[in-house]
Each structure stands twice: as structure tokens, then as C-alpha cells.
Nucleic acid binder design. Structure first.
Lengths: 100, 100
DNA sequence: GGAAGTCTTAGCTATATGGCGAAATATTTC
DNA sequence: GAAATATTTCGCCATATAGCTAAGACTTCC
């Protein structure tokens, strides 16, 4: 059986993948790859209610993928680790091999 | 609001991330990166019952990440898209920026 | 300071996911 | 062909996730 150290490491890594495992969150990340956006912008983009979007953003923030910056009444989110976007190329190649 | 095409694309991508969003499955993928393994090997590795492991493997197979090869009474799984392993480096850098 | 705008938190419900044991299926061995 | 081995599928329960509305907190505008 695997040792505890690697189990803990994979548990932490799984958290990051879990944060990426939602279409709406990927859509928001794609948008954030072109610059910071406020919550209202992202809510309009994905077409969900603001509380829902706020929750999604907190998931991404807790995973260390985005960061927030409150300016006035608005909160702007931005991508912390742009390498996340590089995943998509590989994911596309995975998808081409997926069975329906 | 986002167009339907990109929504569909992100939905498919999210499926791949969802398949990666489990510590046990990451552990198995790490093992498979060193060569093909039968289900019983992987079950011993993660320390779960075989039905559980078999289910995890079918998730990975449906996502296009692994493929199976039945030889005799055993079924061997192997990594189809090794680029998946490259994710881990980036994920590590994400984790270092995550808030606890 | 009250109204309007922006965002988050809380409470609720519905659905998805993960684990197990039991049962079904396929293969080898005797 | 019966017993043993390897794997998958099924049925069950417990927990996690996602969406909503309502309510709370903060900022700006008048």
C-alpha cells in the first residue's frame, strides 16, 4: 500500500483538480486569462446568480488558482497561476481519446 | 453570456478534470506512469476494495485517460495520455499559493 | 442618513460521488 | 464440471456539491 506522505500529496493535488472540475469555473478562468474581472462581469458571463458565482470564485481562491482585490464596492478576481491554462491543451488531447 | 459552443467545450474539459479530482485515482495514475498494472495491483496500492478500484478505473477510462487490456483472467490498465502527468508540476505551484 | 448597487454568507433542496458487500460474469485449474 | 481467482455490476447508504432565495455587510450616491 502507498505511504502516507504520497497519499497526503495526492489529496492536496486532487483539491486543485476538484476546483477545476466544473464547466462554469473553467469558463471564468478562460475569461480571467484575458485580465481581471469583477464578480458581476463573471456572473453575466456564465449566466448564473451572483451568490452562485461568488461561491465558485471562493472555491478557486481556496485552491490558490485566483486571487481577489476589493476596490470600492466591487471585487476584482485575477488568475494567480496562469500555467493552469496550459492544462487545456493536454486535456483536449485526452478528450480525443475518450470513449462516448 | 458565453456562447453554447464554448460552454460545451468547457463541459467536456471539466469531465477530464473531474476524473482527476480524487486522491486515489491520482495515486493509481502515478503508478501507471511506471507501466501497466492489473486491477489487483492497484487495489493493493490504494488499499480499497476491488469493486471500488474497478469503478475508479472505469471513470478514468471513460475520460480517456487510461485504457484496459484483458489478458486471461486479469485486466491490465495503462496510461493513454502521459501528458496528464505533466499537470502535477503546475498543480504543485498552485498549491504553494493556496490559502489554508 | 437612506436608497441603490455589489458581494458574501446562510439555509434549503436536489443531484452526484464514493465507499462497501452481495451477486453476476469470465477464466483458469484440478 | 466444480472450485478458485479476477473483475465488473448492482443496490445501498453516507457525504459532498451546486443551485436557488433570503438575509447580512459594505460602498457609493443623492
Amino acid at each position: 500500500m502507498a505511504n502516507q506522505l504520497s497519499v497526503a500529496r495526492f489529496k492536496a493535488q486532487a483539491q486543485v483538480f476538484k476546483a477545476l472540475a466544473h464547466p462554469g469555473r473553467l469558463l471564468m478562468l478562460d475569461e480571467l486569462s484575458r485580465g481581471e474581472r469583477c464578480v458581476c462581469d463573471l456572473a453575466a458571463l456564465v449566466g448564473s446568480e451572483m451568490p452562485t458565482v461568488s461561491r465558485h470564485l471562493s472555491v478557486l481562491r481556496n485552491a490558490g488558482i485566483v486571487d481577489d482585490d476589493k476596490r470600492g464596492a466591487q471585487v476584482f478576481y485575477r488568475l494567480v497561476t496562469p500555467c493552469v491554462m496550459d492544462f487545456f491543451r493536454c486535456v483536449s488531447s485526452v478528450r480525443r481519446k475518450a470513449r462516448p
